[in-house]
Simulated scan of single mutants.
Amino acid sequence: MLATPSLAFAQDQGNKPEVTVGAQAGYHDLGISDEVFDITGIEVDDASPIFGGFVSVDFPLSDALFAGVEGNANFGTDALDADYGASARLGIRTENGTKFYVRGGYQWVDIDYANILDVPDDAVPAGLDSTFGDYLVGVGIDLPLGGVSLRGNVDTIAFDTVRATAGVGFRF
């Protein structure tokens, strides 16, 4: 009897990919404030609220297992001008459709040095590269709610930064 809802879900889903498009908001901490203070004695704000969107495509591997890909893009209001990237997802889907997953990929971050240092834009040396990228690893959950899903993710870029996001997605 417990397998019946899962089998019914698998028949409804078939082997069709599930596409989700959504909006997200969160907080990205670059994790450099202590190092900057130790070197310069200057306190900096190295974190930023972020707002953006995502697109994911998940492919069922079995009744409970799925693999997928995701792209995201966000803009920041303080220490970050933007971050964007892509990742692969691997997870399990419960009988009610909740997805738990791990993900790994690559993320680029465009830093706003003027905001971090609290100086005018023209005080930042011209030609200073403000974009860096590295590998991303994280965990997440998607909770189905009718035709939408609520989601939460916690990620790190190269185990140097911490980024937490929450969002809502529309499934197709």
Rank of each mutant, 00 (worst) to 15 (best):
I50C: 12
P49D: 14
F100C: 05
A86F: 15
R103H: 15
D112G: 01
G68H: 05
T94Y: 06
V102H: 09
I116E: 08
D78R: 03
P60Q: 09
D63Y: 11
D63I: 04
A73R: 11
D78K: 06
F59C: 06
L65A: 12
F54T: 01
F59W: 15
G97E: 00
R89A: 08
D83A: 08
F100R: 02
S48G: 07
T77M: 14
E70A: 05
N74D: 15
R103N: 12
V69D: 04
D58E: 11
E70S: 05
D78N: 09
F66V: 02
G71M: 07
I50G: 10
I116V: 05
I111T: 09
D81P: 06
G68N: 05
I50Q: 11
G85Q: 09
D112Y: 00
D83Y: 12
R93G: 10
L117I: 02
G53E: 07
A82T: 13
W108C: 01
P49G: 15
S48P: 04
R103Q: 13
D83C: 06
L80W: 06
N74I: 06
G71D: 05
D58H: 06
V102P: 08
G53M: 08
D118G: 03
S56H: 11
F100Y: 14
D78S: 10
D83R: 11
N72W: 13
A79C: 10
G105L: 00
D58A: 11
R93W: 04
D118H: 06
F51Q: 04
L90S: 05
D83M: 09
A79G: 08
L61C: 02
W108N: 10
G52E: 09
V69T: 05
D112C: 01
A88R: 00
N72G: 09
Y113T: 13
Q107I: 00
E70Y: 12
F75T: 13
T98L: 01
G71C: 05
A114S: 13
A114Y: 10
G105W: 02
E70L: 06
D63V: 07
S48V: 02
D110P: 04
D112L: 02
I111E: 00
A64P: 03
A88Y: 07
F100L: 14
E95I: 10
D83Q: 13
L80V: 03
Y113N: 03
G68V: 05
V55L: 08
I111R: 02
V109K: 14
D81M: 07
G91E: 10
P49C: 08
I116F: 01
